[in-house]
Design a binder for these strands. Structure first.
Lengths: 338, 338
DNA sequence: TTCTGGCACTCACCACCGCTGAGTGCCAGC
DNA sequence: GCTGGCACTCAGCGGTGGTGAGTGCCAGAA
């Protein structure tokens, strides 16, 4: 087990390295943090920390740099979450309060997160799985063509074309619309299938084909849309990544363009707490030199989606975690109000 | 006026430079292109071209590099648009045909363009200004709260909350819905305001407040949504930009995050032809070392929105223009079908 | 007039060299 | 277990010289 002082040394190394972006040596450490011991002692501690794999030297005769394992220990044991200042919190609230619709909420959240953390921000649109149906609308566009519009309690709207096997009259459409709504409004997506399965039986034989087509499209929309949409922002912050550019930044940009990768990234966060994945803990290898801080947010007590930031492993963890948590909290409030 | 051969030399310089990314010298030129004259002659021509500002030397004793003015001449006079191969065209069509909804069409288009051109792609969502109304839907959510849903012929759906000054009955809502639709369906957005202005008069005094609120929101939506949405992709291609990285790429990433900038960028394209803006021709200074190739696309004869790519001034113009034009054409087809 | 071969010149790039200084590991002594 | 001292390592920096691609200019040929 590492002594108290050695942990203190590790903390100091992480803080200094994050600040200066340069390997930190024993002398500088004793000067900047009042460790009350000599550089030589610190060197011994560093040797021990290196032995255990918490820090590493880029090359002999250079200072030490934290490893992924070192950051992990730092995040788990040594650092808290740094709360935002009152002014910052007010600014967040004002900025988000000005949103006009769901797209705007998400867009603003992304910009806000990117700006606060000076990193790349990722925000998932509120999930449909946990959402409930607010309204289903059916419109006749042509005799055998309908448009289905689904509106959720989170303010999301999805629409699909439905091509029916045969024409369906306006009154039948109205009837179907009414019956559909009376059954599914206020219900969770997951419960919809069983609630509508016997609907075709209530209609004339002539119309059943069309009704079935509508239901099929509806169910498909519910399922398909569980694949969430995302918005990302602040990619310009990647330029602050490091000096050895193209190689570092490229795989990250590529990873960020793949929705699937991003969704997985966020997906691993648990509902309750914040998740921090450091360097190689990220499954995707393009993100091996990045850390991801993510958290769920929700309108009620439950999380409906996730948001987070992607940055270099050398990031200000307490500050980033503070910002992510605060933003998630406010977005939740905004969603609850609307 | 430049002689035929000098134009030929300029063309050769552009082609070589685009291929190798290195300043091109007189000897290499005569070897790679069969110019039928000696390097010395070419040197004289180069001196003349430089005099006129079409090419420049990064430093003495280096080869020549085209200037923005040189590229401009190349694009205007020396290069055609390189059509895609039959296989490429088939691939485009197959890929786009698989789209399920508008978001998907735009998303696929962006990915396609980025992949074909190996540059950053920007696609504007079909504009509402030129669109027509397919349907307006009104839903009562609470006694004095309605939801307004607007569906366009391009498949776009917008929804807004309407808070009415007082409660409005279900029959009045249905009446308003019917009247609204009978007046505006099939009409252009720009014509809607005058078509609905006298609607409140058809209602009881009790309901007029609510009707006015609905109309106000509708008109607001029409106007607001002329600010288009965009989708961008292929940012990872920026890493192929140049060697002197952070400085080149950063302002571009920043510019790409600002919707306003991008919209202006595309906005300058004329409806009919393709627009190529080279280097300093772009108003935004972050994009001074990039070229933008853009073109309008549309479902009918008319352009409803724009799309394009952003890349280094040193880009393969004929190929890029070919890809952009082809993609725009197919997207237009897809939109016309749906 | 226009093109060509020849020639001197320029200068970015690269490899090499030695210096400097931050940082290290180890050890003997407190 | 901590400290001061000491020898060692090595990335980074600036200077140096050679190389070669590329140039401009000029005199002579077509």
């Amino acid at each position: 087990m590492l002594s108290e002082r050695r942990l203190e040394v590790l903390r100091a190394i992480v803080q200094d390295y994050v600040g200066t972006e340069e390997p930190v040596g024993s002398k500088a450490l004793t000067e900047r943090h009042n460790l009350q011991v000599s550089p030589a002692t610190v060197r011994n501690d560093m040797a021990a920390l290196e032995e255990e794999g918490y820090i590493a030297q880029p090359h002999t005769s250079a200072g030490r740099v934290p490893t992924d394992k070192g950051y992990r220990l730092f995040v788990d044991k040594l650092a808290g979450v740094k709360p935002l200042s009152a002014a910052e919190r007010r600014a967040i609230q004002n900025f988000l309060d000005a949103s006009v619709d769901l797209d705007d909420v998400v867009g603003r959240t992304v910009r806000l997160l990117a700006q606060l953390t000076r990193q790349v921000a990722v925000v998932q649109y509120p999930s449909l799985t946990r959402s409930t149906v607010r309204h289903v609308e059916l419109l006749s566009l042509a005799p055998a063509r309908l448009m289905l519009v689904l509106i959720t309690d989170t303010g999301r709207v999805e629409q699909r074309m439905v091509d029916c096997p045969g024409p369906i009259g306006e009154t039948s459409v109205a009837d179907l619309r009414a019956r559909l709504n009376s059954r599914v409004v206020g219900q969770r997506f997951t419960e919809v299938p069983q609630l509508v399965q016997d609907l075709p039986e209530a209609f004339d034989l002539d119309d059943r084909g069309a009704v079935s087509a509508v239901l099929a499209t509806l169910l498909e929309t519910l399922v398909e849309d569980t694949e969430e949409r995302l918005m990302i922002g602040g990619t310009a912050n990647l330029t602050r990544f490091g000096h050895d550019f193209p190689l570092t930044i490229r795989p990250v940009l590529e990873a960020l363009e793949e929705q699937v990768v991003l969704l997985k990234l966020l997906g691993e966060a648990t509902d309750s707490g914040m998740t921090v994945r450091i360097g190689h803990e990220n499954a995707h290898e393009g993100l091996n030199s990045t850390s991801v801080v993510s958290v769920g947010y929700g309108s009620g007590g439950e999380a409906v989606a996730k948001l987070g930031v992607v940055g270099p492993t050398r990031m200000d963890y307490p500050g980033t975690m503070g910002a992510v948590r605060a933003v998630a909290r406010y977005v939740g409030q905004i969603l609850a109000e609307s």
